[in-house]
Design a protein around this nucleic acid. Sequence first.
DNA 1: CTCTGTATGGGCGTGCCTCA
DNA 2: TGAGGCACGCCCATACAGAG
Length: 258
Amino acid sequence: MSEFMTIQTFSKRTGISKSALRYYESENLLHPIRSKNGYRLYSEDQITTAKLISSLRLAGIPIKDIQMYLKENETVRQQMIKNWIKTLKQKHHLLSVSLRYLESYQKNDQVYLLEKNAEKIVWFVAESNPGKFGNHFRQRKRELERLNISINNGYLRYLSGKESIKAQIGFGVSDDVEIEGLSDIDSIEIMSPCLCIALPYTSPMTEIQKGYAQLMNYAIEHGLIPAGPIIEWYRGEHFEDLDLLMPVARISKMEGRS
DNA sequence: CTCTGTATGGGCGTGCCTCA
DNA sequence: TGAGGCACGCCCATACAGAG
C-alpha cells in the first residue's frame, strides 16, 4: 500500500474536483510530487492542506491570501485566521440584518436599510427644548460657512436631559477640511462606516421622541441590536430632510494580516 | 448627471485532441 | 485510464468610457 495517491483518488478523498486540484497547483497552493510517467502524486498529509484551501475559498478568501497564509509561520497564521474570523463574523452579522429586513419587508414600512459611508464630523454641544435646535443649527452652519467650509450633512445626537435637552449637533465636512478659528468645538470625529436602519421623519419636531420610539420598536421587533445611539440626520440645502438613523452593524473590508 | 456598453480579472468547469 | 495542453464559456464584480 503506497502512501501516495493519484489525482483521481485524491479528488475522491478530498471532494475537490480534479480541475480545481490542477488549478491549485498552478497557483502554488498544493505541490504534489510527480511519478516517473509525470502523474501527480499526492501524500496523505496534503489532504488537510487541500481541505483547508477549499474551505477558505468557500469562505470567500482570495487565492493570494491563501498563498500568503501557507508561506507564513504559525504565529502569523494564527493572526490571519483571527482576522478572517473577525471579518466573517461582521459579514455574517451584516447578512443577518439584511435577511431580517427583507423577511419582514412590507410595502408600507417606511424603515429602510442604509449603508452609511465614513464621514468627518465636527461636533458642537447645544442645549434646548425638544425639537428646538433649529437656531443652534443655523448659527453653527453660518459660522462654518463664514470660514468657507462646505457642509454635506447635519447631525444631532442626544446626550442627556428630558425637558431641557443637551445634545451634540454635528456637520459632515470634507476629509481635507482644516478646522481653525472656532474655539468651542466639542470634537472632530471620523464617523465609521456602518449599516443603519433609517426612518424618514416628517411629523412636527416637537414629537421627535415618537420617531425615536418607532425606530427603537422596529429594532426590537426584528431582533436588531443597536451598534450605537440613534442619530438625527439632516440633509438638503436647509436641512429640510430628516431621517433617524440607528447603526446596527459596523462595516469593514476583508482583513488579511493585521 | 445618469445610463449603457465594454473591458478585465478571478475562479473555475468542460470539451477536445494527442500521447503513453 | 490518466496525463498534458489549449480553447472556450460561465458567473460575478469592478472599472472605465462614451452617449444622451
